[in-house]
Amino acid sequence: MELDQTDFQILSMLQDDGKCSYSKIARNIGVSEGTVRGRINKMLKNEVFEFIIHTNPYKIGLHVQAIIGLETRVGYHDAIACQLQPHRSVRFIGAFSGKHDLIIQAFFRDNEELVSFVDQTLSGIEGIISVDVNVELKQYKDTFSYVD
């Protein structure tokens, strides 16, 4: 799907306020409400974006964020990622080039829960060679906004 300026204006307004009404968007960008509705439905159908609730992990008791780099045996990426996907603490899993084959982002209630995840969960997964745990000390930016 090719996006035009109107689509980007709609996306920008929704990023600022996901509850913004179609009529307000239409007024602000100078198109009809039907145009906004149609454009949003088309973008949703084409998976340009999705409506989600972005929960602040710290407000719900998840006070430890870890970025964990995994070095894996060749050919084990998919199997390891599939085993990590069901864990509620794991928010992101990606395969990368460079020092780490897989990188995961995970949130835990406390350091003990993180240690348990590393010592029990990760140590029990075949194909993981090494684990590099990095705990967030201070957050400077956390956004899912990609449109100006």
Score class of each variant (00 low, 15 high):
E113N: 04
H63K: 08
D101L: 02
V131F: 00
H77G: 05
P86S: 11
R73N: 14
C82I: 00
R109L: 05
V118Q: 07
H100T: 01
D110T: 04
G124I: 01
G75V: 05
E71S: 13
K138V: 09
L102D: 02
Q65N: 13
G124C: 02
L137N: 04
V135W: 01
R109W: 01
L102K: 04
V135P: 15
L137H: 05
A66Q: 11
R109K: 11
D78Q: 08
G69L: 07
H100R: 08
A79D: 01
Y76N: 10
Q65C: 14
G75W: 12
I129T: 15
S116F: 11
V118M: 02
L114Q: 02
G127H: 03
D119E: 04
A95M: 12
S130I: 03
E136L: 11
I93A: 12
F92S: 12
G94K: 10
I68L: 05
D101R: 02
F117Q: 08
G69P: 04
I128R: 05
E112H: 10
N134C: 09
V118R: 15
E112K: 13
H87P: 08
R91A: 13
D119C: 06
G127E: 00
E136R: 11
T72G: 12
Q65P: 08
L62A: 09
G61H: 09
E71V: 10
D101K: 02
V118N: 05
D132Q: 09
A106R: 03
E71N: 13
P86V: 07
N134D: 05
H87E: 15
E126R: 15
G127P: 13
E71L: 03
L114P: 00
Q83I: 01
L137F: 14
H87M: 09
N134F: 00
S97I: 01
G61C: 07
I103S: 10
L84R: 05
F96H: 14
E112F: 14
V115K: 15
G61T: 08
Y76V: 06
Q85W: 00
N134A: 05
V64T: 14
V118P: 06
I104A: 03
G61F: 03
E71Q: 12
D110H: 10
Q83M: 05
N111S: 06
R73T: 14
F117P: 08
G61R: 08
H100C: 05
A81R: 12
D110Q: 09
N134P: 14
Y76K: 15
A81D: 00
D101M: 02
K99E: 11
I125G: 05
G98P: 05
V115A: 02
A95R: 15
E126Q: 13
Q65W: 03
G94W: 02
I128E: 06
V115L: 10
G69A: 09
V131S: 07
S97H: 13
T72I: 10
S89K: 06
Y76H: 11
Q65E: 12
I128V: 11
F96E: 07
L70S: 13
L102C: 06
D78Y: 02
R109V: 06
S130K: 14
I67D: 05
R88C: 08
I104E: 09
L102Q: 04
F96C: 09
I80R: 06
A106G: 13
Q83C: 04
V90R: 01
G75D: 01
Q105G: 09
D132G: 04
S116N: 10
I68T: 15
R109N: 07
Q139W: 01
Y76I: 01
V131I: 14
H63A: 10
